[in-house]
Design a protein around this nucleic acid. Structure first.
Lengths: 208, 208
DNA sequence: ACCGGGGTGTTACCTCGGGTAACATCGTCG
DNA sequence: CGACGATGTTACCCGAGGTAACACCCCGGT
């Protein structure tokens, strides 16, 4: 009965530090916050990734469940999509530091492979894939399309959500509309602008 | 006349190491590859980020120019979009390690902010934003939409491209079609599947 | 011929973060 | 009581980023 409660307690401390310092908080800092020293952390979590994983799994649950529920909502498809988008944006808006934790790919991957999406986001992508597969009639290609779209949509919402969170250029509702419009083919449906010729993009020395 | 050529030479060495070991190559490794020691690297590039930036800027140019050209191609909009997608996928397919370098957000950002898209990708996003703004009639919201879409599309292609590159589930052409279809509103157009009820997603203990 | 500057390079060091080994302590159960 | 399994500690190792101090070498000016 001793392991679990202590583990929770350590995770609480780690959580506080991460909320305060972001996902790059050091093990020393976390240990200090918990009032103990490093080896204990390592006994409980193995290594840093273990700690971070345990921490993310705590929060992933809620977000994942919310997304899953939104995906299963008995609505018109467009409304369902908006609902999912809004769920995600609301979550990252409410707890930005947690969001950063969830979206940071683990830096330790030695193969250097497949790091574009953090584990938590991969799960979301799989959820979307499943939903598309089971809800939308995409013909023979449906497995491929569903998987590509699952990743693609997740990445899209990640990048767009990140930008939105940083610069807050509009309300959440509007942002949901903007993304849903994109997924709804508004890019295809909109008319051409008369100006057929691009203004020659000035080659700036890398906007830093 | 001494600085520049040496700098190039060092960048060549760094390039080789990164091709071989991925973007997490150490400064020592790079120095060794160049046949020299660390302080020289620091003299030329200031710090690690400086080196990485110099390295990425080398490659960014080509990709960015290619994307820009594809965005300006005098084609039907759908064909243009496919052309841009194909340009990106071809680039990452041709030089995966370079791609990883370009897409890895600099880990040193202390604010922990806005790291979803690496600088090179931010430039691509801006390019897309400009193209949408100048080519597509989106009404009053066009600035907001163009910017949100620029980020969103970039993130979408990043995540989907990453997955594709890892698992190569299909030809590049097919992948381009899959993503173009997504952007073209096929998600909206497809019919519902008869199975209205979702199979209750089993709650797995985190697919690791 | 000399000397100084700006490039080249070096060795040796610092700091900090992840990770571990070895040891001490406390409480509970037989 | 003794033993075990948890708690905790101090002190260390290692690798990576980064720097200080010093040595060389060439070239141009006086």
């Amino acid at each position: 009965m001793s392991r679990e409660p202590r583990r929770e307690q350590l995770l609480n401390a780690a959580d506080r530090v991460v909320q305060r310092e972001g996902p790059s908080a050091s093990m020393n800092a976390i240990a200090a916050e918990a009032g103990i020293t490093k080896p204990i952390l390592y006994r409980h979590f193995g290594d840093r990734n273990g700690l971070i994983r345990a921490l993310t799994e705590r929060h992933t649950g809620g977000l994942l469940a919310a997304i899953r529920a939104a995906l299963a909502e008995p609505l018109e498809r467009r409304d369902r999509v908006e609902h999912v988008l809004d769920t995600y944006l609301a979550a990252i808006e409410a707890r930005p530091q947690v969001y950063r934790l969830l979206t940071h790919p683990e830096p330790g991957d030695p193969s250097g492979a497949g790091n574009a999406l953090a584990p938590a986001l991969k799960q979301i992508a799989e959820e979307i894939t499943r939903a598309v597969q089971s809800q939308v009639d995409l013909g023979a290609d449906r497995d491929l399309l569903a998987e590509a779209w699952g990743r693609g949509i997740t990445g899209m919402v990640l990048a767009a959500g990140d930008w939105w969170l940083e610069s807050k250029p509009c309300s959440r509702t509007r942002m949901v509309q903007a993304l849903a419009d994109l997924l709804w083919g508004r890019l295809a449906a909109a008319a051409d602008l008369p100006t057929a010729v691009l203004p020659p993009t000035p080659v700036e020395p890398a906007a830093d």
